[in-house]
């Protein structure tokens, strides 16, 4: 379709796309490279040194334990502790870290998703905001008067383009971390199940990135200016997050963390997030008699539905306004 082609060309011609995405990508490459640089594969010498250091530490702890035993003698409490265990002192802990792809790659999805979400929000906001502010949108409507189609096409092109850029970034990111695993650690233990879990996490990350793009787009379209979306984001961060934190702590709202965006991002990406209320005088005990402070479990479904609701409301308002407003 011609409008789709025009919008796709417009998206990739924009200066912001040509700057912000490379900057985001550069950030990811830098982080991945630092991870690469600070890990190394265990050489036999490093392992030997690690073993020696672990053994030395073990011996030292044993000495301390025996000295303590001598000092308290008969009065030692019988807490069942029999002294340091050799297995607690692993050579790995005394060696330069090596990169375990299986263990670390999954946790690092959050870095990719967060950086790309920021990029996506900016691109989404300015893609439609600059159009409104410059009058180019009005111009376009004298070519294509079906407003819903124009705004819908823009949104569709934005989401697809952002998805493509995010997948590209993920490819680069994964490539460097894979190299880190191969050259500076291990890529062992990658069963199909592990890959599947990676895939699902990547999909959730992509969903989050697209949600941010849509939010930026919707807000900027409602305000007819990129600045509105950026202002709203800033307001949420400063008033909503910093302010709420201070307020809720003062009036002691239980589980106030659940109102913070990062908590939900974390819950979404890591499937769940457990909030503990350490300040509560009450504790919750299970059948086995283990007592813990009260806790609140936020699942990725919880966070996902809140985010989806928000995106739907903002977009619905943006489209409704587009349908009825006078453009002058």
């Amino acid at each position: 379709m011609s409008l789709v082609r025009a919008e796709r060309r417009r998206f990739f011609k924009r200066r912001l796309t040509r700057w912000v995405f490379p900057i985001g990508l550069l950030l990811l490459v830098t982080i991945a490279s630092i991870l690469f640089a600070f890990h190394s594969k265990p050489t036999p010498e490093a392992r030997a040194r690690g073993e020696a250091a672990a053994e030395a530490m073990y011996q030292e702890q044993v000495r301390y334990y025996e000295q303590y035993k001598r000092e308290c003698g008969e009065k030692c409490p019988d807490d069942g502790w029999t002294g340091p265990q050799r297995t607690d002192f692993r050579a790995e802990d005394f060696m330069p870290p090596s990169f375990d792809f299986k263990a670390q790659y999954g946790e690092l999805f959050l870095v990719w998703a967060a950086i790309m979400a920021m990029v996506a929000f900016l691109l989404g906001a300015s893609f439609v905001g600059a159009e409104w502010a410059s009058g180019a949108m009005m111009n376009l409507l004298t070519w294509q008067p079906k407003r819903m189609k124009v705004l819908g096409t823009k949104l569709g092109v934005l989401l697809l383009s952002v998805a493509a850029l995010s997948i590209l970034a993920l490819g680069v990111w994964t490539g460097i971390l894979w190299a880190a695993g191969e050259l500076r650690g291990t890529t062992e233990g990658l069963t199909p199940g592990v890959w599947q879990s990676f895939g699902l996490t990547a999909l959730r990350g992509l969903g989050m990135i697209l949600a941010f793009a849509a939010l930026g787009f919707g807000l900027a379209s409602i305000g007819r200016h990129t600045g509105l979306a950026l202002g709203a984001a800033l307001a949420v961060v400063i008033v909503g997050q910093v302010g709420l934190t201070i307020l809720f702590q003062m009036i002691r709202v239980q589980f106030w963390e659940q109102y913070l965006v990062p908590v939900h991002i974390f819950a979404w990406m890591n499937k769940e997030m457990k909030l503990m209320d350490y300040s509560s005088p009450e504790t919750v005990c299970d059948n086995a008699g283990n007592c813990n402070p009260p806790e609140l479990l936020i699942t990725w479904q919880d966070s996902g539905s809140i985010a989806l609701g928000l995106v739907v409301v903002v977009l619905a308002f943006a489209f409704w306004q587009m349908r009825r407003r006078d453009i002058s």
């Binding site: 011609s2 082609r5 025009a6 060309r9 417009r10 011609k13």
Partner: peptide, 12 residues
């Protein structure tokens, strides 16, 4: 040229 060619695209 870009401005016009984007419009030309939008109008086929």
């Amino acid at each position: 040229r870009d401005t016009l060619s984007l419009l030309a695209d939008a109008g086929s």
